[in-house]
Design a protein around this nucleic acid. Sequence first.
DNA 1: TCCCCGAGCGCC
DNA 2: AAAGGGCGCTCGGGGA
Length: 602
Amino acid sequence: MRTHHMKLAGWPVTGHVVETQEDLAAFAAWTKQHTHFGFDTENTGLDVYATDFRCRTAQFSAGDTAWLLPVEQHPRFAWYTARTLERAQRLYIHNAPYDLQVADRHLGVPLETLFPKTTDTGILSRLVDSRSRKEGGTGHKLEELVEHYVDPVAAREIKGSVAQICKELKIKRDDYFRDVPLDDDIFQMYALMDPILAWVLNKTLCPKVPASATHLIPYEHKVAEICTKISRRGFQLDETYTRELATRLRQEETYWLMEIETEIDKLGFLDSEEFNPGSTDQVAEALLYMGHTEFKQTKTGKLQVDDDLLEHLATSGLYFARTIKEYKKAGKWAGTWPESFLTNMDAEGRCHANINTLQARTGRMSITGIPAQTLPSGDWMVRRCFLADEGHVIASIDYQAQELRMAAALSGDERMFNAFINGEDLHQITADAAGVDRKIGKMANFLVCYGGGWKALVEQAKVSESIAKRTIAGFNKAYPGVAALAKQLTKEAGRQGYITTLTGRRLYVDAERAYSAINYRIQSTARDVTARGLIKCDKAGLTEYLRLPIHDEVVASLPKANAPELAHEIGQCLRTQIRGVDFITDPEIAGRSWGSAYGADY
DNA sequence: TCCCCGAGCGCC
DNA sequence: AAAGGGCGCTCGGGGA
């Protein structure tokens, strides 16, 4: 057994390392004295479902003492880890979905056993302040939180120690954790400190959760548990189709690259070998040479070359603009979607999206790994990559106008409220109030909920300044309650620096953008509508069918035979009422692939 | 060489 | 009066 003596915020902390099987007796004796543990694992990587993933070590803490077990060295170390996890009454973990998926898949202790007794300090920190470092918050990484709340020096030393070694050895951080020998002192101290920090952060953060939000603590843990179960199940990839799609897009990219070279050669002023069509700067330069001078500027003063401009130039006959547009699109699509799906796929051909249940500053979820929330919806070719399970079909259950209904519920605006009750066309109402097309009325409706003004409408709807002003004024006339709410929340945000949502969540609002407050309240409360729906689905035993939550929509894989009933049941679970406004859902059943919900045959 | 940022674009 | 909100990912480019 090896023992490390360390310091945290001036206090001594002790870390013990199990080195041989004989050391296990001392570890077991220690665990018998405690019921609550900080917990953490070190592993070969971040993708728990990768075929070469291994759990390397497990660490427990109680108060100022921690233990490390070299799980990868002997099954008995893994066995003791699993028994300790099962026996614990309470676990404190930073970013529990990760470590609990490790325990589930690699230590044989299911999520269902551990999540109900876990406190995730990541969740606590987001309830205290949802903002990232960049947005002026504390951030949510372990090191960031420790630096802010516990001990800046220790935070820097811990983080710095590994960073420095990586620099010396000229390796990446990921490689270090995969390859470092488990008897390395620096590694051991780093690993031992983490569960101690989780323990300390729990103590520190709990009392800082605003009173209005304390009831969200168990709720957010339930939401995280459900989403972790969804991640664990994964979404079946159609590997053959996905490979073909990736290949085809790369071929298109190559074709357009050759077309670009031809165009550049024709010009004769640039070397086509040197020209990089992926560089916005160089494309702008080429366009200048071609005599186009009508550029907008980006906020750093560069010439703006976006889709709008290229499309405009292409339709007015400039083939070069077309080639750039198509080249960029093919490459971007290949790399962002099918190729990334194939990289993320596990041995059974399933993709495990990483669902961050409280990622956005409004509490909205985000999905990383496979960027499932950003798949093109105007075209089925990318969504076609994902399949319902064998014998299943895809179902999509989404809320009807979730955010606009939330605007009605939160503002209590009579006209908007009645429009939903009577099934009137909200977009037409705005349009009529301003004397514009329905399409523009619709844009204005969303824009106001996003805190936007007439200038944004000019950009988006391509209308004149006066029409845009008239439309926004029309909205305010049609729905005065929404305008009043926006004003009231802006004032509230300016006065106290934050707003509180209907569910009690505290959201800080930047003083210089206080007008965002209404959007924050709408978006955040809408997020909670979906999250509460997920909890109802879980209680009804439907989680095994869920594949992805996407803001105001849930995607599911349902057994073909009773897909309609199950889709209806999910829809009923998601449905809710707020202040008399009904949040109704549209269950839709498609075919085997997700693409079939967007027009694909299969 | 690595890391961070801006620009651009996909979604709700 | 005016103010478009929230994400993730890719690439190129500049600085360390």
